[in-house]
Design a protein around this nucleic acid. Structure first.
Lengths: 245, 245
DNA sequence: TACTACATCTCGCAT
DNA sequence: ATGCGAGGTGTAGTA
């Protein structure tokens, strides 16, 4: 594609809040929170209608370079090079994408704004534990969920039948060292706030790493195996037919 | 675009390891680590040549749905609906993208494989500190960098002039509570391994949050203000001319 | 493979 | 705005 046509397209989408996707052969410089350089190669270039800029390599899931929504995007020539430059007024990031060839490009005015409905998060899990306290122990009485303390917020907080306060930290994945120190931090904070040493720490997660288990036991905490919350959704998977390929 | 043409395009790119980008009006179901549903709207659909699948809304930086590289992608009709389905054999994630209309689509065989050269990371920072120990203190003698211990690895490790071991943890951003507990973990582990209480903990970062500072002081650690190094310093920014827009 | 920690993490929520 | 923690986190490095 001729540079002029591409330039007109970029001009159009930035002026009209449209979205653009392009295949380009380019070289990239980035400066901002870090500094980076990427040598010549074919990439996918995306400008969203909120002026987010994404540059993807043809492999891997994440963009190799990006600017958050709100970038200022300009295109100019310099010494026979076509340069797409994005600068972000808030983050002070700069991307310079030196384009040698535009293989293909297209734009569209997209109408969306829908929010995704998500289930199976840690919040669902702590909710589940508060409603099913016997998963922690037979005498566990939950008092609150997601209680905020100065040192963070506690997923589930309560007491047991022996006059102990109980702090529960949930993780929806294997609990690691960092998770145990997080629990420790909450336990110590509650001990300080309530002026008692009778605070039990409970890690609730589907798994726990060996080092984390050792550390947990060293500090007298306990671990309860809890499965991440059940699948809620729909079974559209019983398709029957009709592949083209 | 007619569904048949789009189907042929999808078939072609998956068969030949090409990349595809499309504007589509769709509705999305996801099931995997969590479950999600996204109502009708215009989105950008991307299939990479490693069979990563990305679906972007026209705003925000991140994909609203995605599959990692290695997905199996099929397209079929069901009750007058066109469904692009991606399933991931390893992660067991499924995306079903019900497509009402393909506004536009294009594909290309992309040639890349270049690696980004990055500077200003935490590794650069610990390197910088090891080579400039006076940034920690006048009597700091670094011994090692990124030393691995059972409880994690220590960014910079050394000793001072008073017979103390010194553990330095670097962060390229504002040090938070979690960062201090990480430092604490390393200090305690070294105390245990070396059988001495003479272990100083030093947090090196450009900033530190107030709570983190309090916690750090409670435990007798210290904070040193260090900026993350940037070494590339591309100065292509002095462009002169030639905006189209 | 599992575990650990970084990331230009991003994002939402609460203060 | 800042602090804090979750995330369908992803990714690299190491044992």
């Amino acid at each position: 594609m001729e540079w002029e046509r591409f330039a007109a397209l970029v001009e159009h989408v930035t002026a009209h809040n449209e979205s653009l996707m392009a295949f380009v052969h380019c070289k990239i410089y980035y400066s901002g929170r870090a500094e980076a350089e990427l040598d010549w190669g074919d990439r996918m270039l995306i400008i969203k209608q909120d002026n987010a800029l994404l540059i993807h390599q043809p492999e891997n899931g994440n963009p190799i370079n990006y600017l958050k929504p709100g970038a200022r995007i300009t295109l100019y020539q310099e010494d026979h090079a076509l340069i797409l430059e994005g600068t972000h007024p808030q983050t002070h990031d700069v991307i310079q994408c030196e384009i040698q060839e535009v293989h293909d490009a297209m734009s569209a005015k997209l109408d969306d704004g829908k929010k995704q409905v998500l289930a199976g998060t840690e919040a669902d899990m702590s909710d589940h534990l508060k409603n099913n306290p016997e998963l922690i122990s037979n005498d566990f009485k939950p008092l609150s969920r997601e209680e905020h303390t100065q040192y963070g917020f506690i997923d589930v907080f309560g007491h047991d039948g022996n006059g102990n306060l109980v702090v529960v930290e949930c993780k929806r994945y294997a609990a690691s060292l960092a998770c145990i120190t997080q629990l420790r931090r909450y336990v110590e904070k509650i001990q300080e706030l309530k002026g008692t040493k009778n605070v039990r720490g409970v890690m609730a997660s589907p798994k726990i790493t060996p080092n984390a288990k050792t550390m947990l036991e060293d500090w007298g905490f306990s671990w309860v195996r809890v499965e991440p919350p059940k699948r809620l959704l729909i079974n559209r998977n019983q398709k029957t037919l009709g592949d083209w390929g």
